[in-house]
Design a protein around this nucleic acid. Structure first.
Lengths: 151, 151
DNA sequence: TTTGAAATATAGCACGTGCTACATTCCCGT
DNA sequence: ACGGGAATGTAGCACGTGCTATATTTCAAA
C-alpha cells in the first residue's frame, strides 16, 4: 500500500477532494457578495421610483432596521458602489449601477427559467431571491439558450 | 407577480412592500441554516466512507481550518444534529441524519434539473452547491415533475 | 513503555450582520 | 422663526464564521 503525501482520512483514503473544497469556498465567496447585490439592486429600484434611495425605505424593503441598513450602506460606500452624504439619500456609482443592472437581468432570467420548468410564479419569485446569487455566467447562458429554444 | 400599489415612501404611505421584505427575510433565514446543511451532508458522506467523520477530514473537504470546523461542530451539537466526544469522531443524530438525507436528495435533484436544461455538468455541480439551499419544497416538486415528464 | 508527530481543542482577533437604545439633524406646520 | 416628530446617525451588544497561535490528547513506532 504505497503512501503518497495525501494525508487522507483515518485509514488510507485516496481521493482528490480538492474539488469539494473548491465548491464550498466558491459558495462562501458568493455569500459575502450577495448582500452587496441585494442592496445595489434595491437602491436602483428606489432611485428609479423616487429619484433617490432613503435609508428608511431601504430598511423597510429589506425587512431590517435602519441602523443595519445604515451600516451596510457604509460598507457599500467603502467598496465604491454608492455615494452618500450624511442625512441625504444614497446614490449608486457607475460600478454600483453596473452591478445593479447585471443583478436585475440575472434575477429576471432565473425567474423566467423557474417558471418555464413549471415552478409556480410565487415560489419562483421567492426562491429566486436566494438562488440568483449562485448562478454562474455559464449557467446563465445555458438558461438563455434553453428559454430561446422554447419559442 | 404584479406589484400592488406604489409605496409613497417619502410621503406617509403605508405601502405593502411587505412581500419584498418577506423574500429577503426568507433568504436571510436560509443563509443561516445553509452551513448546517453542508456539514450534515458532509458528515454523512464521511461516515459512509470511513465509518466516522474526523474534524480534520471535515475541515479539508470544506476548505476551512480545523478550528473553524471544530467550532461549527460545537454548534451542530448544540442544535442536536450531531454527537461528539472530545478527541473522537463526529456522528449524526437521527435529526442530523434526516437532514443529511433530505439535503442530499435535494442536491441531486437540483443538479439533474440544471443538466436537463442544458447546464454543463461541471457548472451544474459548482452552482448547485449554493443554489440547493434556496430551493423550496414547492420548487423541488416542480423539478421532479419536469424531470419525469422528460422520460 | 516511552515519546513524538498528527489530531484535536481552546484562546483570542477580525469583521459581518443583525439588534436596541440613544443622539443628532432635518424639515414641515404653526 | 421655531418646535416637534420623523429621518438619520452612532454606540454598543450578541453571535456567526473565518483566521492564527498555542495547548492538549491520542496513537503508533521505536
Amino acid at each position: 500500500m504505497p503512501r503518497d503525501d495525501l494525508p487522507s482520512a483515518a485509514e488510507g483514503g485516496i481521493p482528490p477532494e480538492t474539488s469539494d473544497a473548491d465548491r464550498f469556498t466558491n459558495a462562501r465567496a458568493i455569500r459575502s457578495t450577495a448582500l452587496f447585490e441585494d442592496y445595489t439592486e434595491l437602491i436602483a429600484d428606489l432611485s428609479e421610483e423616487f429619484g433617490e434611495a432613503r435609508i428608511t425605505d431601504i430598511a423597510r424593503r429589506l425587512g431590517v432596521t435602519h441602523p443595519t441598513a445604515n451600516k451596510a450602506v457604509l460598507r457599500l460606500k467603502r467598496e465604491g458602489l454608492v455615494n452618500s452624504r450624511p442625512y441625504r439619500g444614497v446614490f449608486l456609482t457607475e460600478a454600483g449601477a453596473a452591478m445593479a443592472r447585471a443583478v436585475k437581468a440575472r434575477h429576471r432570467l432565473v425567474v423566467r427559467l423557474l417558471i418555464a420548468v413549471g415552478v409556480p410564479a410565487e415560489a419562483a419569485e421567492m426562491d429566486a431571491e436566494g438562488i440568483e446569487h449562485y448562478v454562474s455566467e455559464t449557467t446563465l447562458r445555458a438558461f438563455e439558450a434553453y428559454l430561446n429554444s422554447k419559442g
